[in-house]
Amino acid sequence: MHELSLAQSMLAIVEQSAQDGGFRKVAAIRLEIGRLSCVMPEALRFCFESVTRGSLAEGARLEIIEIAGEGCCPRCGATLPLDELYGICPDCGVPLEVTAGTEMRLKELEVA
């Protein structure tokens, strides 16, 4: 359940942003989570609710933008969709370099 650590980390970023940006209430948190990252969105939602209780983000909407996995062949440069953290270029037979899908980013906040 590393989602608990991630939720705590998310709250720390939100609290720091509140200090820097002078807001006291968060209405929504928008995350970008790659499909190849080791995050289960449902587990993250569950942890988020318990971690934010009593904080400035209590009751905030957690919006998760999922980012599809993508790999690039280092030999021919072809870009291919990836459902797993590894893949082979069908033309060259070499392992693909993952270029998208591992994101775990706090994109933006809706604040009051």
Partner: peptide, 11 residues
Amino acid sequence: TRTVSVGQDLL
């Protein structure tokens, strides 16, 4: 409400 851009990795 207003939108605040953060762009930080969760880790």
